[in-house]
Design a protein around this nucleic acid. Structure first.
Lengths: 338, 338
DNA sequence: TTATACTATGTAAGCGCTTACGTAGAGATT
DNA sequence: AATCTCTACGTAAGCGCTTACATAGTATAA
């Protein structure tokens, strides 16, 4: 937008009969200004509908007051709450949010769209940034916080994520202890996904703890996607794989798996018990209502943002924050409704 | 971030042995530069890892290359696809996206966070902006596009939305013609919501067309929310309201309604037929899979963004775009699976 | 050859702020 | 009353770009 028509700091200064420095001071609430003067300035600001040009501010002050968020793709169910948390925390602290998704472009063309030149700090979600760029930013001390993924070796970047392993153990132990399941499928996330890795570790640990041998054939590919999970479960059903329960790496995959089960004439939880992970809003509305590991996703967004802001302010911060997960019992695991 | 360490256009100019103007020209690909010179500049850019400071650019050129998006709240299921469309379209055209939600602040404190001083144009979703500010922006010719809501009288702001009325008619007629329903509940959205208004009009029209008298008692409050819909349906079930079908103003409410029905021991579709609106990704995974009106939400985001960009470029644009909705038959209406 | 028209590049004036520094005047100190 | 402090405010120097304008150099036309 051509902004040459709207009021600048100079117009305000003229109308209020002060210098532009004073206007700046009043607007930013810094250094003392006599109340009467301040009031005159404020009146002028209102009269002229003055809004400081962000660009001029940034250029002069050298900080952007903007946080960047890089995500591979905005996939609704899971990401929306996190985004809500991020947006809220950023907004409350007076920061703007610049969002970039890497889905429709290669990482390469994305190299420099977000960085020290247009943001004060970056929130980076899973695999959405090149290591070289990350290393460069980290080396110049640019504030970065990772979401749901620990930093590559050598980089000093804090992470905010959830207790994946503990959550998974909770789920699998519930299946074993309460429902006496022995052959439990683990529906994994995308190849190399860290959340999924930890959840699988929790799964294995729980089996081990109860003396159930780990069977690799029971680890299936769900890709954190309803569609993929549905396809996978259909396929193994076809191949008559035997199992009495499914622990799904995330709720969406659980949804897909339940569709496949229903399609095959199997009932949840009578024939197959099911537990998910994340606790998306719709989980309780599924049929049967989905027992799942509740993950405080919105809180992850908030925490990460607050952490980043502290980093921007050059405060020291913890290098890892693990938010608690808990078992939310509904009916898909075989428990009765409350 | 203090950016005083990283390279500026001057460093590049010095290294390449040209003036900063030439660097600017090469970087922006404007006005002709001899290939050899250009190459020298490009080499210098690469060597110094030069990235133009956005703020300086904006200040000098007077446009921000940024689009603003104002939404009341980022509610996952429905909004995520739209956001994906917006992000994609903006990204492809080389625009950044600045997002503001109005949920956690009053509209008043939000007055000037997004506007002509930091964006080239604004995407405004339902009721998320004060009329006064809207009027001011419109009067100075600032580009704005509305999503799912027509502009207030007197303002010349284009809208992108979907064929609500037609979609609703499709749904209700299907219920009447194919499944012989006569007492169809309409589960409305939030008070004053335009989408819901049109959907209700479509509902009434369909009834009228088939000679079914309109019964105000059948218009229930769903608020486009699972929880509210669940509560409402529970309540009317308690009060033994009679109905043989529910046309829900959106899928989330349909989900809640189905929970309430199940809770009351009623089966869908045997006892109550159900059709939703929007076709959220989970619709097909519900039990039974939800028959719904498919709305091209992502496409709405894309279209609106492209429209806005054309507005930013001072091209003329259509004042209203209505994207087609269509009936997606699954099983909740009583049709058999395909 | 000389005038004419481009073309590629340089020069410099801002864009609208923030902020280090300077200064006048009021109050405190002697 | 003279000196010293502080405080409130003004002055002015950039921040790193874009772009109108100027200019040197080259190609074209006469």
């Amino acid at each position: 937008m051509e902004t040459n028509n709207s009021a600048t700091i100079e117009d305000v200064a003229r109308l209020a009969g002060v210098s532009i420095a004073t206007v700046s001071r009043v607007v930013n609430g810094k250094s003392p200004v006599v109340p009467e003067t301040a009031q005159r300035v404020l009146d002028a600001v209102r009269a002229l509908n003055y809004v400081p040009r962000a660009a001029a501010r940034i250029l002069a002050s050298k900080h952007t007051n903007t946080l960047g968020l890089i995500v591979p793709e905005i996939s609704g169910e899971f990401f929306a709450p996190m985004l809500r948390g991020i947006e809220a925390a950023a907004g409350e602290a007076g920061f703007d949010l610049l969002i970039h998704t890497t889905s429709y472009k290669s990482l390469e063309t994305h190299r420099h769209t977000l960085g020290e030149h247009n943001t004060d700090g970056l929130l980076v979600f899973i695999d959405s940034m090149e290591l070289a760029e990350l290393t460069r930013l980290n080396s110049i001390g640019f504030p970065i916080v990772f979401l749901h993924q620990t930093a590559p070796a050598g980089l000093n970047i804090p992470v905010v994520t959830v207790e994946n392993k503990k959550g998974a153990m909770l789920a699998v132990e519930h299946l074993i202890e309460v429902h006496h399941c022995r052959r439990i499928v683990y529906l994994s996330g995308p190849e190399g996904n860290e959340d999924s890795g930890w959840r699988e570790r929790g799964y294995r640990l729980a089996l081990e703890k109860h003396g159930i041998p780990f069977d690799p054939a029971l680890v299936l590919f769900g890709n954190f996607l309803s569609k993929q999970a549905e396809r996978t479960i259909s396929a193994v059903l076809q191949a008559s794989l035997e199992f009495d329960a499914i622990f799904s790496g995330d709720d969406l995959a659980a949804v897909g798996a339940m569709s496949a089960l229903r399609e095959a004439g199997l009932r949840v939880p009578e024939d197959v018990k099911m537990i998910g992970f994340d606790d998306i809003p719709l989980a309780r509305h599924l049929t049967p209502p989905l027992t799942t590991i509740h993950a405080p996703t919105e809180e992850v967004g908030r925490m990460a943002t607050n952490l980043l802001i502290r980093l921007v302010r050059r405060e020291t911060v913890e290098s890892e924050i693990l938010l608690p997960t808990e078992l939310t019992i509904r009916q898909s695991c075989g428990c009765r409704a409350l």
